[in-house]
């Protein structure tokens, strides 16, 4: 019984750490907007995409969905992998703040104007 208790405690602590590792802070949404657009401008200049305009607008997802995307760092759907791979954690948290604060279920859903 004591062993089970210890195991459960260890598991809880482990899960907490794993969760913390994937948690993402919300940065500066104004800066995030600029960095987000800059990613696609660079990508467009490199010739990978046809437009310098970001393909996914903030209102394309809910706030929870954006949190999932950025917590898991699953950016495949964004394309421009080279540019995304070079973003720092601070850049990502800024972009996250921009997309999250203007998500479909936010008070101010936004297309990438």
């Amino acid at each position: 019984m004591k062993k089970w208790l210890m195991f459960a405690l260890a598991l809880t602590i482990s899960i907490s750490f794993v969760g913390a590792a994937f948690a993402i802070d919300k940065g500066n949404k104004r800066k995030g907007k600029y960095i987000y657009r800059k990613v696609y401008k660079a990508c467009h200049e490199r010739g990978e995409v046809d437009s310098a305009k970001p393909p996914i607008n903030p209102d394309a997802k809910t706030q929870a969905e954006w949190t999932t995307v950025f917590s898991g760092k699953t950016f495949d759907e964004f394309g421009c992998a080279d540019e995304w791979s070079q973003l720092s954690d601070e850049d990502l948290s800024n972009i996250y703040a921009y997309l999250h604060d203007h998500a479909a279920d936010s008070p101010t859903p936004l297309k990438c104007k």
């Binding site: 949404k29 104004r30 800066k31 907007k33 600029y34 960095i35 657009r37 800059k38 936004l110 104007k113």
Partner: peptide, 14 residues
């Protein structure tokens, strides 16, 4: 609203 002007600020900073 501050959105585009904020972006402008960071663009100049960059």
């Amino acid at each position: 609203t501050g959105a585009r002007s904020g972006e402008a600020y960071y663009m100049v900073q960059d």
